[in-house]
Design a protein around this nucleic acid. Structure first.
Lengths: 142, 142
DNA sequence: CTGCCTGCAAATAGTTTGCAAGTTA
DNA sequence: TAACTTGCAAACTATTTGCAGGCAG
């Protein structure tokens, strides 16, 4: 019956990352969101608790956590300016994004077989792929 | 037996776009590339012919041509900062990018069926999707 | 107490915008 | 000649970086 705070502390410790208040809070926001979140969004949430925090701190930590494979970076906007980050729970997946309200639905990957075929056909060593699907959610369609 | 210049002029006229030297040259570069090209790349090529051209002119025209569905905008870098544009020849397709030399191979879309299924499962109205596959080309693997 | 981390300010990269002068139809 | 386009400079947005003081281990 561990507290979330302790679980996340252990995630940090287990990756040789020093524990700071900022890191704990950033990671917690990502963990609880269960969806990709932008740096700016993290900033706006966190500023209420830690008024002196800066965007640079957010970015430094999001990048650090991504390097350690604790987070994944994804680009979801149609006009790819802003990145989002999501807590990485170990499974390769993709996203369906509502272009009206930005709601995000995770999708299982439909390309496992395709990748193998592609590797044969092109003779490339396939490393990774990304899929983004855009649509309008039932709520916004009304 | 039409000249390329005339073909491209007609593309512009047909879309109610005024013909300027800059537009003709930009479109020609995109047409002849047969692969996505960045604004910066267009700029560096075109500066040799039109030394006074500015990046802003390139961007304005790439965006205009995209709005008219003459070009498609795609984001191919793993770290999505820079956009590329490609001449749109009418077929929906995707890209396999070599993460070492940036060579690009167009891919047929493998998701036609999947999209329909997804629409039923999620009740979203599916609008579009993007796939990028990353790999290492045979040449770079050596 | 040593090195990593943060706040802060400034830089960077890609892209966009306002404006006056030049060009197209 | 009216409307649109361009060169030019400056602005803008997301993100990164250098530095000095502060905090974690």
């Amino acid at each position: 019956m561990e507290k979330l705070e302790d679980i996340l502390k252990n995630v940090l410790k287990g990756n040789d990352i020093r524990i700071t208040r900022q890191r704990e809070e950033i990671l917690k926001i990502l963990y609880e969101a269960e969806r990709p979140v932008t740096a700016k969004k993290v900033y706006s949430i966190l500023r209420k608790k830690l008024p002196y925090i800066r965007l640079s701190t957010i970015y430094r930590n999001l990048n650090l956590l991504e390097e350690k494979d604790i987070l994944r970076k994804v680009e979801l906007n149609m006009d790819n300016r802003e990145s989002s980050f999501e807590f990485f729970r170990g499974e390769h997946h993709h996203h369906l994004v509502c272009i009206s309200c930005q709601e995000i639905i995770p999708l299982e990957c439909p390309l496992a077989e395709y990748e193998k075929r592609l590797q044969k056909e092109t003779n490339y060593t396939i490393i990774d792929h990304k899929i983004k699907v855009y649509g309008i959610c039932p709520e916004c369609r009304k």
